[in-house]
Design a protein around this nucleic acid. Structure first.
Lengths: 201, 201
DNA sequence: AGCGTAAGCGGACCGTACCCCGCTTATATT
DNA sequence: AATATAAGCGGGGTACGGTCCGCTTACGCT
């Protein structure tokens, strides 16, 4: 085999991966994320434990892989969907829309997203990194004068957006009113962003 | 024993707790937090494994207990120290000062604070809750008109303050310039808070 | 079709967090 | 000082995440 070839995933491996994800979804639906252990998943899928680990690297990786499907769709809406979420609107409007969409997305995937964290990967997988890049870009456009503080603010905004749902257990109180657009966190996100958008001093 | 009595900690228990914390500190100083296992700590302290668990409940609890010592001093400075950190200054100034102090505190305790997190207790112990209460109070004073969004903003500000250091591994890049007052995160925190302080629309 | 090779697989193995429960001991009461 | 009792203690047990390595199998090449 000449070097540099993409080395596609072998057919049996792909089949096993799909089967494992399918099985994991079933187990989550029946007993919640807590009960999805490496051993149990492997046994129920009729595969070896080593296989599970090879596919997902870590327990958290299982949940990250489950989210990734939906995450791709979400990213697509952000990168090339209609404004204000997609490109075309003012940066501030896009930031606000992004926050609202991201909060809704996280709410839809709360159990998975929380289970997808572990000691090392504290932020769930690719999604958070994308959030960070997107926020950084929009904030830089909205406030080109911001300079040195762009990196710090990016981190803090990302944490402000993803943190309350992922890290604070007490969130379950505030998250309840999921009725339509009236997510309380989305409203306060808008206040936060609008405050930043107006040049200071 | 009549009910309602405070049930003070037994003398031997208190001695063991101090001894365990002391031993843990030694082990951390020598080999870092990773090497502090329940077994190793128990053996080195000359106590049973069950004792360690009974005292701290969980591995993360050990580190939380270690932080709590310093945390108490920090809280004292916030609650009754000199302004602007302590009472007496304007709410916005106190918020900014609080953020700066908290960031410095977390930087001083980074290894401990990160080790004090686990799947269930995602936020390290009491400190974060205190942060939340304090931020809520000051924000409410700074913007009495804010109403419904107070709770959401409180959560998001707390996450913005503690999140970048605790959850984002890539932080280590930004945290480096620890020279004096010029913490980049502290600067951007100030921008964030000042944006919020000005009434919107 | 047959072959060589690297990817994939399985499951035994290890270290560690956390649980449990019978024994010990400090402390209050008399 | 003796006693009762609840808190504390010890350390073996269990379950789970993660690793390792020899065997198997899919796939590309001839």
């Amino acid at each position: 085999m000449p070097f540099g070839r993409p080395r596609v995933e072998r057919a049996d491996a792909a089949r096993n991966r799909r089967h494992l994800l399918e099985t994991a979804r079933e187990m989550i639906a029946e007993h919640g994320t807590e009960k999805v252990t490496m051993d149990a998943l492997a046994e129920r899928a009729g595969l070896g434990k080593g296989t599970v680990f090879r596919r997902f690297g870590t327990r958290a990786g299982i949940f990250a892989a489950l989210i990734d499907d939906d995450e791709r769709r979400f990213q697509h809406a952000v990168l090339s969907g209609p404004p204000p979420l997609g490109p075309g609107a003012e940066p501030v409007q896009r930031l606000i829309a992004y926050g609202r969409a991201r909060i809704a997305f996280l709410l839809d995937h709360l159990a998975l997203a929380r289970a997808a964290m572990d000691r090392n990967r504290t932020l769930p997988a690719a999604g958070a990194t994308l959030s960070q890049l997107h926020i950084r870009m929009l904030l830089g456009q909205a406030r080109p004068d911001i300079g040195d503080e762009l990196d710090g603010l990016t981190l803090q905004l990302t944490a402000a957006l993803e943190g309350p749902l992922l890290y604070v257990p007490a969130m379950d109180a505030v998250e309840l009113p999921v009725s339509g657009d009236a997510l309380p966190l989305a409203e306060s996100w808008q206040v936060l962003v609008e405050g930043l958008a107006r040049p200071g001093r």
